[in-house]
Design a protein around this nucleic acid. Structure first.
Length: 436
RNA sequence: UCCUCAGUAGCUCAAUGGUAGAGCACUCGGCUGUUAACCGAGUGGUUGUAGGUUCGAGUCCUACCUGGGGAGCCA
């Protein structure tokens, strides 16, 4: 006799019914004549109960002998139960062990504590653990929220290439890849230049994909491969960027709070910190930010970029992000439009998250005039030939346009309150770690 | 790349320069409501590698390897 298969997250709808759950043994607690196998199925965890006197001897022995992470399909009646973690419990009537983990080579990740190195080496298994599972589900919610926001605000998803020719942004380090016939290409570090082309076709676009940076950064906020969403808008300015960034973040935060309560609880995330993320965000010019930092004891001088400690210091008294705009043009890329009133400033904006999560968004208004762009390329020592198509965009209907990029992992880390960005992607790629 | 800390049982960690130990995991036994269950017993070690100092090194020194944290750079 076979019973309907349900997912643990739907248990509430099946109280009183006999159903099957296909999953893996998360943990097993047992005493002489009763045992509690905890089964997880990816949607949740179900505490099962088996009382020796109530079931066949063979079934009881099978359950009692289960090893951690053995695969099994359990069948039984669902019952509301206060003593069980999820609020529901299954009285086991049958169990089909699909694969038993051997005792002599047990599952390496025990319910006790482990070190970072060990866990990272076992990342392919670590993602089964409650905490990691919760983080990756929140990541999913974040991505879905981002897409829903842009899709419902007139943006078209137009993805940009991952293989790119050499001269994209110039400054940052690129990963080089062998292409055919001795040609070299590079892994993209931003889809932005291509967005500037697609935006002139669609008006409002975004790209969403992996980006690569061969920076030898060794901090809790860096990955060499990370996901970035980059919206771009035609007939738009710096102010539009700030408004969209603020709106989008509020939208996604609300989604996470609405749909991922359980996961936030698992992570022991202070919800009030997320609830505080509401418009209007703080707004500040680079000039004022430098002054504020200096008054707080920072060594920063006008013209320099903010370090990690500066970002944390700047937001220490804030409960929501701050949008810092009009940076010195010298520390920004060639494609930024300059402030017409103060040409030494670039019309760029960074969104710095509170709680030390730092720069989550960077963006601004792009150069729209052909001659200005040519001059900017010269100033940065970039060859016009490599930017032929990019210059075309200013020749054929050039208009003011603006956009930004947001790092998905940094944003997710902020939502989750995690110490390290490596936990916010299933298989992180970092300076000295490319496995598993 | 630089600074800094750490490598001891499968895992997490102890051990004044003087006999390498505990908890967890695993095995065996006990327990009918457990919540990282608990109680008793057992198995488990070339102390990251190579040199050096010393009567004697897990411990001190040198180099290297691996990893953590931070800086710079960035999302």
């Amino acid at each position: 006799m076979s019973y309907p298969r349900i997912r643990i997250s739907d248990a509430a709808k099946h109280v009183g019914e006999t159903v099957s759950i296909a999953g893996w043994l998360y943990n097993l607690r047992k005493s002489g004549k009763i045992c509690f196998p905890l089964v997880r199925d990816g949607s949740g965890t179900m505490q099962c109960v088996a009382v020796k006197s109530a079931i066949p001897e063979e079934l009881f022995e099978t359950l009692k002998g289960l090893t951690q992470e053995s695969a099994l399909i359990v069948t039984g009646k669902i019952r509301a139960e206060e003593r069980a973690a999820g609020g529901y419990e299954m009285d086991v009537e049958a169990a089909d062990v699909v694969q038993k983990v051997p005792e002599e080579d047990p599952y390496p990740i025990t319910p006790k504590e482990h070190g970072v190195d060990f866990l990272m080496d076992h990342r392919h298994l670590w993602i089964r653990s409650k905490r990691q599972h919760a983080i990756l589900r929140i990541r999913h919610e974040v991505i879905k929220g981002i897409r829903d926001y842009f899709d419902s605000h007139g943006f078209t998803l137009v993805d940009t290439p991952i293989f790119t020719p050499a001269a994209c942004e110039g400054t940052t380090t690129l990963f080089e890849v062998d292409y055919f016939e001795d040609e070299k290409v590079y892994l993209t570090q931003s889809g932005q230049l291509y967005n500037e082309a697609t935006v002139m076709a669609f008006g409002k676009v975004y790209c969403f994909g992996p980006t690569f940076r061969a920076e030898k950064s060794k901090t809790r906020r860096h990955l060499t491969e990370f996901w970035m969403v980059e919206p771009e808008m035609a007939y738009a300015t710096l102010d539009d960027v700030k408004q969209v960034a603020e709106e989008m973040i509020c939208f996604v935060v609300a989604r996470v709070l609405e749909n991922r309560q359980e996961e936030l609880k698992t992570l022991e995330r202070d919800i009030t910190k997320l609830e505080a993320i509401k418009a209007p965000f703080n707004r500040m010019s680079y000039d004022d930010a430098v002054k504020k930092l200096q008054s707080l004891g920072s060594e920063i001088q006008w013209g320099g970029d903010f370090g990690n400690t500066d970002e944390t210091l700047l937001t220490a008294d804030m409960d929501r992000p701050v949008l810092v705009d009009r940076y010195p043009a010298e520390i920004k890329a060639f494609y930024f439009e300059h402030d017409p009133d103060r040409p030494e400033l670039a019309l760029g904006v960074d969104l710095i998250a509170p709680e030390g999560y730092g720069e989550v968004i960077g963006g601004g208004q792009r150069v729209s005039d052909l001659e200005t762009l040519k001059k900017r390329l010269d100033d940065h020592g970039l060859p016009h030939e490599a930017f032929g198509w990019y210059l075309d965009l200013r020749k054929f209907g050039g208009v003011p346009h603006a956009g930004f990029g947001m790092g998905v992992e940094r944003f997710t880390a902020w939502m989750c309150g995690t110490e390290h960005i490596r936990e916010t992607i299933a298989f992180p790629r970092m300076l000295y770690r490319t496995r598993p």
